[in-house]
Amino acid sequence: MYEIRLHSRGGQGGVTAAKVLAYAAFLDGKYATATPLYGAERRGAPVVSFIRVDDTPIRVYSQIRTPDLVIVLDHSIMQTVDVTAGLREDGVVLVNSPHPVEVKGHTTYTVDLTSIALSLKMVLAGNPILNTPLIGAIAKMGIISRESAEKAIAETFSDERNVMAARKAFEELKI
């Protein structure tokens, strides 16, 4: 089972990103679940979503304690939240940031999803749309196929710029 923990802020689309990611994995023929962790959080508060991918049906509902991958949609969260808590020794971190970010002891990938969204003028209620470019970046990491990523996005969002953003992130992320 491959376990992903996604850190974002309320309103950034983290919950939707988790769903689309699970859908893409599902299109790859895998079993996948996406769980938002809800509390009384409102817009702007740090929130967490969990994604599990496996070859057999997933029977676990509790939170992910030892993720294989940690995704940070807003690098400022790292100042207040220990995003690497429980991260497996060989675990990987993916951060949305304009500057390269280093997480000690873990392979860390950085991609500027915000600039990608802004370059395509993808803004919703004042927030750049980060979830669809994120899916492109995750495809680049090989967790989901590029085809399923694009299909999942296209079936979820009618605006074609979402697929364009995913492609752009796929190209920009250096593995």
């Binding site: 859908y23 996948a32 938002p36 509902y61």
Partner: peptide, 12 residues
């Protein structure tokens, strides 16, 4: 259905 645990989880 267990609230959130099942109502809000995305599954195939």
């Amino acid at each position: 259905l267990d609230g959130f645990l099942l109502t809000h989880i995305t599954q195939p």
